[in-house]
C-alpha cells in the first residue's frame, strides 16, 4: 500500500482544526472594526500597529508570563516526585495511580476551577483554617489564588510526560551512580534529571503555553483583579466593548511567540534523542 495514504488523516486534522481556524483569525486581524464593535472585512495592518504603540497590554502580558513561569516551575517541583514514585511502583499499582492522575479530566475544567472558588473564598474552610492559625491570606482576586488554580489545573500535564520519561529510565543506572560513590542528591542531578530531560521539556511546554493564554482561571479566581493576556483577548471578543480585529491580532502575536518557544524546545528534545 502507498505509505502516503497515511498522511491524509493527519493533514485533514491539521486543515480542519488548525489551518482553517488560524486563517479565519488572520483574516479577522486584518479587518476593520465597525462602530458597533464587530468587523468590516478589509485589509489593514492598523490592528497590529495598535499592538506596537500603546502598551496597555504590557502589564497583563507580564502577568501572564510571570504566572506561566511560576506555574511551570511549581508544577515541575510538585510533579517530579509524584512522577518518579509513580514510575517506580509495581505495574498494577502504577496503572491505578496513573488513572488517579488522569481522573480529574473526567470532570469539566470550569467546574473544577469553580470548586476551587468555593475552597478559596474568604469564608471557605481553607481561609478559616489559616485564620485560626493566625494567617490572614486573601486568595480570591489575588495572584496567589490564580496561581493555586493554575498549578492545580495543569499539574497532570506535567506529571504525565515526566512519568513517561522516568518510566523508561533504567534504574540500574541509578545503582551504578551509587556504586561509584554518588549520594542520592548527586545521582539525581547527574543521572536521573538529565535522563528525564525530554520529559521535563515536554511537560514544561505543555504547562507553559496554555497557561500563557489562560483566561478561565484568572477570571474565576482572579475576579478581574489579576489581568492576564488571555483575559484581555477574551474581552476583545466577548467583553462589553468588543474589538474582534484587535483581539485576533493579539491572539496571533501570542501564537507567534509561543511558536518560537516551541521551536526552541523541540530542538532540545531532538538533541536528547539518545534517551529513548
Amino acid at each position: 500500500m502507498n505509505g502516503r495514504l497515511l498522511w491524509w488523516p493527519g493533514l485533514l486534522w491539521l486543515l480542519l482544526f488548525f489551518a482553517i481556524p488560524v486563517t479565519i483569525i488572520a483574516l479577522i486581524s486584518l479587518a476593520h472594526r465597525a462602530p458597533d464593535g464587530v468587523i468590516r472585512w478589509g485589509f489593514t495592518l492598523e490592528n497590529y500597529l495598535r499592538l506596537v504603540e500603546p502598551l496597555y497590554w504590557a502589564g497583563p502580558f507580564v502577568n501572564s508570563l510571570l504566572l506561566a513561569v511560576l506555574t511551570t516551575g511549581l508544577c515541575l517541583v510538585l510533579g517530579y516526585p509524584v512522577a518518579y514514585s509513580l514510575a517506580r511502583q509495581p505495574r498494577a499499582v502504577k496503572n491505578l495511580l496513573l488513572f488517579l492522575v488522569i481522573l480529574p479530566f473526567f470532570t469539566n475544567f470550569l467546574v473544577r476551577i469553580y470548586a476551587w472558588f468555593i475552597v478559596l473564598r474568604p469564608e471557605g474552610w481553607l481561609s478559616e483554617a489559616l485564620r485560626a492559625l493566625g494567617v490572614d491570606l486573601v486568595f480570591l482576586g489575588s495572584p496567589v489564588g490564580v496561581l493555586i488554580g493554575l498549578v492545580y489545573g495543569y499539574l497532570p500535564f506535567m506529571i504525565l510526560p515526566l512519568y513517561a520519561s522516568l518510566e523508561r529510565l533504567d534504574f540500574s543506572l541509578v545503582e551504578a551512580a551509587h556504586d561509584l560513590g554518588a549520594t542520592r542528591w548527586q545521582s539525581f542531578w547527574r543521572v536521573i534529571f538529565p535522563l528525564s530531560r525530554s520529559g521535563v521539556i515536554a511537560g514544561s511546554v505543555l504547562v507553559f503555553i496554555p497557561v500563557l493564554g489562560e483566561f478561565i482561571t484568572p477570571k474565576l479566581l482572579g475576579g478581574g483583579k489579576v489581568p492576564m493576556f488571555g483575559v484581555l483577548i477574551e474581552e476583545k471578543f466577548l467583553g462589553r466593548v468588543p474589538d474582534w480585529p484587535l483581539g485576533a491580532a493579539m491572539a496571533l502575536a501570542l501564537m507567534g511567540l509561543v511558536s518560537l518557544v516551541l521551536i526552541r524546545s523541540f530542538r532540545y528534545i531532538k538533541e536528547s534523542r539518545w534517551v529513548g
Binding site: D170, S172, L173, E175, A176, A177, H178, D179, L180, G181, A182, T183, V191, P194, L195, S272, W274, V275
Partner: peptide, 20 residues
C-alpha cells in the same frame, strides 16, 4: 553501609553506562 560508601565497584550485566 550504603553502596556509595563501600570500597567495591560493580560491573553490571547490562553495563549500565550513562547514555547521556
Amino acid at each position: 553501609i550504603p553502596p556509595q560508601e563501600r570500597d567495591v565497584n560493580l560491573v553490571f550485566q547490562s553495563y549500565a553506562l550513562f547514555p547521556h
